[in-house]
């Protein structure tokens, strides 16, 4: 891999063409799946896409920038509540949420503006929380973001007028389908890809590898870390919003610490910083735990699949601590999207 990339190859164009082709092929596959498979499988696929998007978006902090954040469920909860309140049918708001302020009680948005607002709210929260929290490193950051989950959960439980307390919001219009999930996943992957192989992505990885050295070459590490955190929060919130419009319920416990753990598992197994790795790991874990569910139910051993996931993680940490692909992308993807350049593990 010491060979330098030949300068004359018009890499971006070839990359875009390949990406467009792959996306089109995947869309065709989704269309086929939607037409031929049962509703259950289609919903499962939608959840799978959302999980993949979540895992990739967690990569912004945990993979590229080396910030060990567990805060995803907190941002997802914010996104879910914001979007659900915005899309909720106006005529039913009176009975469901009588205490809602006037301007919220009379609005009823369609899905796209609602999820964008949800993402923006979470991004602002991330910005505010980020100032104190991002000064921390390693497990301090992890516990502080875990604390953020607890804080958001108790807000959702206790702020009755907006959130309807512990019983949560039910009967949220089922506006999301497989196409929303698929499209969102593509957007997240494309964004992650563009960032990873841009100067911003390099700055993130430099910050991860050696903060002092990164500062010395002129990288504003505070800004880079903040960007990664806010971007991750934005996508997490949108994913959380899309998911509740798929399952039509949200409670303060919908997105829990366990979810944070499972997302971390996906990122670690895929290889921290590897986009394709995160997608593959997320798909595998989603399918695996869904496949184990009937077994769990028939034997009556609830929680078994979670034990298996956790044990799998421990095994990966023993045997292959860098995950499937380390921080790079698999060979075939590298070839497809433009030569050697993308494969190098920075």
């Amino acid at each position: 891999m010491s060979k330098t990339v030949p300068d004359e190859t018009p890499l971006p164009i070839r990359g875009f063409a390949a990406a467009a082709l792959v996306a089109a092929a995947a869309a065709a596959a989704v269309w086929l799946a939607q037409a031929s498979l049962s509703d259950y499988v289609v919903t499962l696929l939608a959840v799978l896409f959302l999980n993949a998007a979540l895992a990739v978006s967690l990569n912004f902090t945990n993979g590229f920038t080396g910030l060990f954040s567990l805060g995803h469920p907190a941002f997802m909860t914010i996104g879910a509540y914001v979007a659900a309140i915005l899309t909720f049918p106006e005529r039913r708001k009176g009975t469901m949420l009588p205490g809602l302020p006037e301007f919220l009680a009379t609005t009823e948005l369609s899905l796209l503006p609602a999820i964008l607002i949800a993402g923006a709210v979470a991004a602002v929260v991330a910005l505010i929380v980020g100032f104190p929290v991002l000064r921390l490193r390693g497990h301090y950051l992890a516990v502080a973001t875990l604390g953020l989950i607890v804080i958001i959960q108790s807000l959702a439980t206790n702020w009755d007028t907006i959130t309807r307390g512990g019983s949560g919001l039910s009967g949220i219009p089922r506006l999301t389908g497989i196409w929303w999930a698929f499209g969102f996943m593509l957007v997240v992957i494309a964004a992650a890809w563009r960032i990873k192989f841009s100067s911003l992505g390099r700055a993130m990885m430099a910050t991860r590898e050696n903060e002092l050295a990164a500062e010395c070459v002129g990288i504003d590490t505070v800004r880079v870390r903040m960007l990664a955190f806010v971007l991750g929060a934005f996508f997490a919130a949108v994913a959380g919003a899309l998911l509740v419009h798929l399952i039509s319920v949200v409670t303060p416990r919908t997105y829990s610490v366990l979810l944070a753990f499972n997302l971390v598992v996906m990122v670690v197994i895929g290889g921290s910083g590897s986009i394709i790795g995160a997608v593959i790991a997320a798909s595998a874990i989603t399918v695996l735990s869904e496949a184990l569910r009937p077994v769990e139910e028939s034997v009556g051993l609830y929680g078994m699949s979670q034990v298996i996931v956790a044990l799998a993680l421990i095994l990966v940490l023993y045997l292959r601590p860098q995950g499937l692909f380390g921080s790079g992308e698999p060979m075939i993807v590298r070839r497809l999207f433009g030569g050697d350049r993308f494969g190098q593990t920075p």
Binding site: G138, A142, V264, L301, G303, A310, L311, L313, I314, L317
Partner: peptide, 26 residues
């Protein structure tokens, strides 16, 4: 995994915690 980076250890303890909790649930 003692020689591994700090974050690896941290993730491993999370995993152990999940195993214990879910085994207890089982």
């Amino acid at each position: 995994i003692r020689g591994a980076p700090q974050v690896t250890g941290f993730i491993a303890t999370l995993a152990v915690s999940i195993v214990i909790q879910n085994s207890a649930l089982l």
